[in-house]
Structures are given as C-alpha cells and as structure tokens.
Design a protein around this nucleic acid. Structure first.
Lengths: 124, 124
DNA sequence: CTACGACCTCAAGCCAACTTGAGGTCAAGG
DNA sequence: CCTTGACCTCAAGTTGGCTTGAGGTCGTAG
C-alpha cells in the first residue's frame, strides 16, 4: 500500500459527486474516517468513495447522517436491529408514497379547475 | 353559513393533529388561507381541516410547503404539469427506496461484523 | 378580585446539512 | 516574480419548518 493510492480531497469530491466542503464536513462529523495528513493536506483511503456512495444512497432513503454513522460503525451487531427498524419505516414510507402517487394521479384526472377545490382534497 | 361553523385555531390544531403555532405558520406563509378575525382571533373555514390533512400527506410524500402552496392555489391548470413532474420524481424515489430496502436486507443477511466492512458497501 | 385558559403579535431560536467567507500555505507554470 | 489553483482552518451564514419566549388582551369561573 504505497501512499500513491491515497486520494486528495478534490478527487474524492469529484469522483463521488459531492462538494469538497461536504467531504470535509463528513470527516468532521465522523461519518467518514479522518484522513491522514500529508503536509497538512488530507489523503483519503480509496474505500472512502464507496462509503460516500453508501452515505448518499442512505440519505436518499431518509437516514440522517447520525443514523448512517451509527449503522456504519457499529461493531456490536446492533446495527441489524437498527436496519430492521428502518426497513419497517421505509416500507411504511413506500406505502404512503404509493398512496400519494395514486391520489395525485386521481386528482390529476378529476377535472377540477384547482386542486384546492377538489373534493378529493377538501374531504379527506 | 352562520359564523358558528367557523373554527377557532385550537380546534383546527386539535382535529388536524398539528400544533397551534404550526397553524399560524401555515397561515403566515399562505399555504392555508388567511382566517377571518373576530375580535382579533382567527376563525377558520372548516375546509381548512381537509386542506391541512392534504398538506401533511403531501409533506410526507416529500413536497415542500412552497410546492404544496403552488399546487393548491394554481388556477391556470399548470398544477397538472407540476403533478406530472412530481409523479415522475416520486416514482423514481419509490424505486430508489425499494433498491435501498433490498440492499439493506441483503447487508443484514450477509454475515458481516460491521456494515463499514461489508463488500456491499465498500464496492459500490 | 384574581387567576386561568385560549387567544394575539413579533422577534428570536433551533436543527440538520451544508455553504460561504476571510485569511493563509504551498508548488508549478508563464 | 507573480499568479493560479488546490488545499488548509475557523467562524459565521443559509434554508425550511417550525417552536419558544416575552409581553399583552379577553372572558369566564372560583
């Protein structure tokens, strides 16, 4: 493992599609591990890329950075419980999303001039 | 329509399950219509209840209050376009959610000690 | 009389997740 | 030699969606 495979912050940012400041922020709050410094500058383990990608997808799914940190770094196996809980939550969310989608589709087709006046809205 | 069927703020809050301050906030930003005042106190149209319920579900689905306001009050029919866009977005979100759900389920079962070390995370 | 509860206004505070700004180091290039 | 660009730190600002606090008005009940 020569130091040449360690990435500068700009590289991490670019390849994972987030800003440099966001990478620094992630490091600061500990959701990615603290980079080694070479002449004061951060050098990241390439695995950071995968980790950031996981973080983004988890955020997409509605996890907070704190939850993500907990899940990623847990050594005790408790994370499985957290994930179970989250799976339930996500499934419920998915269901509500589906309900909303079909409701919107219905409203879309109902011929109302304005949504505010639609009986599907006022009587729910 | 006697003034007796107009609701005080506490009633709106209680029956729609949100706080009094949230109702005031909604009125302030215009996402529910400004209540008439009787002796300085707000009296709301009962339809507000349905509207608030729609607002909450829309928020659940990921709409911002600004978007909700736009959709609710549009008179021009443009809201159908907005809803179309949102339907696409929601569907994409639902798909990502499903992906995340199965990924988490997979990680849950993969026998790793820690998520951070799971190849499903590091190689994505 | 006074205390209570429901209401009012206006300003400020809070949280997450970042971004922005000021001010500085360092190496490479024209 | 001077500029440019990538990096650094630390503090403060931003946005959305509310909540909280201070200070005040009513009307009813004890």
């Amino acid at each position: 493992m020569s130091s040449t495979d360690l990435l500068p912050i700009g590289e991490v940012a670019k390849t994972s599609g987030i800003s440099v400041s966001a990478v620094r922020y992630y490091e600061e709050i500990g959701v990615i591990s603290s980079a080694t410094r070479v002449g004061g500058k951060r050098r990241f383990d390439p695995a950071t890329i995968g980790r950031v990608s996981f973080i983004r997808r988890a955020q997409e799914a509605g996890f907070s950075l704190e939850e993500i940190g907990t899940i990623l770094d847990d050594e005790t196996g408790i994370w499985r419980v957290l994930v179970d809980d989250k799976l339930i939550e996500l499934t419920e969310r998915k269901d509500r999303l589906e309900t909303m989608i079909s409701m919107l589709a219905e409203i879309r087709e109902c011929g109302c001039g304005a949504v505010a006046a639609c009986p599907l809205v006022t009587t729910s």
